[in-house]
Each structure stands twice: as structure tokens, then as C-alpha cells.
Design a binder for these strands. Structure first.
Lengths: 252, 252
DNA sequence: AAGTGGTCTAGACCACTTT
DNA sequence: AAGTGGTCTAGACCACTTC
């Protein structure tokens, strides 16, 4: 309740209609900035789509698309016959399809990596199945410890099929696996991921600096490229006191 | 490589152009069914959008929207200048904005609930902050154990602000919290959620039937309704050997 | 040069909510 | 009755990839 048709103005002063950045994206970005900085306050109602389109001098579908972006992000809520409103809470970024290295880097920590294992092995049955290749085919097996400011936060185990089996150990010291793949022209698009938890086993507790048998947060993911082919199978475990997955869910 | 322009035909035999179901949704559903049942095989390329539109007798934007739905779900991959292809792997359903009760029910288990705590309390600071209400305001505090076929799988702790503090204990025995809320006209739209892990503490191990100090998978979520208002704050913990979150990530 | 998806326009009609 | 978002049309031009 109590949501006036508030509407700020100079939010869209610098739209570039000839540049390479899509119009809808520019509008969405500026709207998001205005919402996150409370220039458009939480709970307030937006002007209707047609008015916005007229005032910005663009078509309604373009405005709609911009708004839809923010609805999908969970910042806005639309109701037919009512209007579009800003959600009350601040919104966390979704689970991104980036490597942990990028995540840590973007949150201004200093990530480092130590490689424990770097070997080419014939794929065991389960790995082959996940990678959609024949059992026994050569794959690159990696096991690394990821540190943030010197503190271990995760153990990363990865399996990569050809043509990535020649990735060098040195490449992975200063860059995340995904950065290395991107540099090789791999466009990562889709991943299937499962998150769960279990006791630390083997050397994991020592590597992470937690007590034996203590809890670890686990992920298992299969990553696909642009062409829908499998690029990587990863089994990771994280220190749960230092890491959590934050996401925004939007009802379909 | 090796992706022919395969294209089946009688997939779209029963489109209803006058019913209430949107055209793009019908097309997307039928396409998804065809892909999941391998009528359209993994890795194959789709016809281009304009041809599809012509053959189905609809406009290109409508076809585009249908395809986009499946791209967002991670079933299809689009590349400019190349075409649209089916992703290799089978796709898991994303983390849904449903209650655990619904989840368990839809996977054909028999969920039951035992309420441990059902009390109205003045909101402590942290709870008030999450619910965006004043400290000390009355909230409903719930603590329940969720079982699947008699086996405990989760401990659910929830805090609800007015006007939901009058939800009766009986209501929650046979239905999930979200079902109860929906029955009261609440349309759930957005949630911010964090997933992590920790040791079981207090009575949790006994309630879940796991060893003392064993690992539990935890979630913390703030749920918003249609109007962007906070409906619920929940802190849940799950038996990690019986529960995991599966999701499909799609690069923006 | 030809073919693909990406963006954008300028409307139209409808379903739903509020007055 | 008036106002809102939801869907759909029939085009247009562009950027990118392949031949």
C-alpha cells in the first residue's frame, strides 16, 4: 500500500542511440542504478509503459524489454491492471556462471591458487558419462586449492576433455579456469549445477584449515559452451563459514 | 560440429489460437517436450526463426519469444550468424520458488509435518530487520520438522509478520506454508536466498536423525509478494544426504 | 553474397483491476 | 469507464558468420 506514482526524471539523460549498446539495455541499466541508489525508492510505483515510451521517444516493446530485465532480476514486480512497483528489499546478485576466481576478485579479495594435481588420465566411467565422451578417453584432471588473502576457501577438482587437455599448470596460477578457457575462445553459456553438503573427507579438512569431519559446502557442475558441447565437469568443496551462494528467485 | 538442419514436423499439431494460453507458451512447451523426449535430438540445429514463423503461421517475435524461453532454461543455445542448437546435456529444473512441501510432493513422496513451535513473539532486532518492520512488532514464529515417507529431511524455522500471524497450527499439518499463503490470496513473486552449510547444533541432529555435529545444508530466505512486500523470513536446514539444490545457470 | 540471430518500430486487441 | 500490463502482428535495419 501507500505507493504513489513517483517518478524521477534526469535518470535517462545520456542515452546513446547510435552506439553499439542496445537501447533496452541502456534503459535497464539506468533504471537499475536509480533503484539501487534509491533515487527511485523501494515500494514506489513506476509510470506506465506507454508514457515512458513516449517520454523517452522509443517504442513500447523496447521499454517493456528494459523493464522485463529488472523483473527477471527481482528488482521490479508487475501486476496487470495495477502497474509496476519496486520490490522492498535490496536484491542480491544471482549465482553467476563465473569461476570462483572471478567471484573473489570482483569482491576485492586477492585470490591465489595452488595446484595439487595436474594429470592426464583415461576417463573413469562416471567422469566419461558426465563429459559425454567414451570411457577411457584422455581427460585432464585438476585438483587445486583456492585461497583468498592467504586463507583457503575451496578445493576445486575439475575434469576437462579434448581439446583442453593441454592447458598448462602455469596458466592456472594467475587466472581462473574460466578465464583460461575464455582466452582460448571458449564461450561459456550453460551449466547444470547441484549444491549440497557433506563431511570433509581425506585431506580436505587439513587443506581447508577446518576440523576433521567438519562440514563442507559442495557443488557439482557440468559446463557447456556456445555450441552446447561439454567443456568441463567440476566437483568443488567450500569452507561454509567463508562461502555461501546468494541468489534471487523469481516466480515464473 | 556435425549438426544438420534436422527438423521434425508434427510437433505443433494441436496449437490452440483462441484459448487463453499464450501462443509463445504453447510453442515453447511443445518444443521443450520434443527436446526432452529426443524427438529433436541433442546437438541438432533448429530451422531459422523466420521459416518457423512462416510455417507455423505466426510472426517472428512470437517464435523468438518461444525460443528465448528455452534459451533461458538452458535447453537451447543461440549464436548470431550461426543458428540455434539444442544443448547436449539433459537439463535439471532450476531452484524453484516453491516450498519444500511442494517439492517433495511433486517428486511423489509423502510429506508430513510436525510443528515444534507455534508462537507469537515480539520481533527481535535481526528478524525485524529482515522483515522490514519495527523491532518488537508481533510476529509469528514457527519451527517445524518436515518428513518424507517418515524420514526427517528438514527443520524449517519461519517468521511471518502481520497479517499472517493468525495462521493456525492445524493449517500447516496438511499443507505447506506457501500453499496456506496462496490460499489466503498471497501471490509469491520474488525471494532472496542464501545457501550454505554448518554443523548441526542443539537438537537438530536428533531431530534429523544424523550424528551430533554432523553437517547440515542451510538456506536463509526472504520472500516477497506481488506488491514487493515482505511475506516471510525463513531459516531452514536439510539433511545433506537426502537433499540437494539442482539448478541450471545461463550466462546472461 | 547469403544466411543467421539481435534490435527496434508503430501500431492492435485483449484481460485484469480500480473507480 | 478508464487505466494498466500481456500478447501479437508485420514489417525494418543491423551485426555477425560462413561461403
Amino acid at each position: 500500500m501507500s505507493s504513489e506514482t513517483i517518478w524521477p526524471d534526469e535518470v535517462f539523460s545520456d542515452l546513446d542511440r547510435n552506439g553499439p549498446v542496445p537501447l533496452y539495455y541502456q534503459v535497464a541499466s539506468r533504471l537499475e542504478r536509480a533503484i539501487r541508489s534509491s533515487v527511485i525508492p523501494a515500494g514506489s510505483r513506476l509510470e506506465n509503459e506507454i508514457s515512458i515510451a513516449q517520454r523517452l521517444g522509443m517504442s513500447r516493446p523496447t521499454v517493456r524489454r528494459a523493464i522485463q530485465e529488472l523483473v527477471d532480476k527481482g528488482l521490479l514486480v508487475r501486476r496487470r491492471g495495477i502497474g509496476t512497483q519496486v520490490v522492498q528489499g535490496q536484491v542480491s546478485r544471482p549465482v553467476e556462471l563465473t569461476s570462483l576466481y572471478d567471484d573473489l576478485q570482483s569482491t576485492s579479495h586477492e585470490p591465489t591458487t595452488r595446484t595439487l594435481l595436474h594429470a592426464i588420465i583415461p576417463a573413469p566411467e562416471e567422469i566419461a558419462e558426465q563429459l559425454r565422451i567414451a570411457e577411457g578417453t584422455d581427460v585432464l584432471h585438476l585438483r587445486r586449492v583456492r585461497r583468498s588473502d592467504g586463507t583457503p576457501v575451496a578445493i576445486l577438482e575439475n575434469y576437462l576433455p579434448a581439446p583442453f587437455t593441454d592447458i598448462a599448470e602455469d596458466d592456472l596460477d594467475t587466472r581462473g579456469l574460466y578465464q583460461v578457457l575464455r582466452a582460448r575462445g571458449v564461450a561459456i553459456r550453460v551449466a547444470n549445477q547441484a549444491i549440497s553438503a557433506r563431511r570433509a573427507k581425506g585431506d580436505e579438512a587439513d587443506l581447508l584449515g577446518i576440523s576433521r569431519g567438519g562440514p563442507v559446502l559442495t557443488t557439482e557442475r557440468v559446463v557447456f559452451n556456445d555450441a552446447g558441447e561439454v567443456v568441463e565437469y567440476g566437483i568443488h568443496c567450500y569452507r561454509p563459514d567463508l562461502y555461501r551462494f546468494e541468489t534471487t528467485l523469481v516466480a515464473k
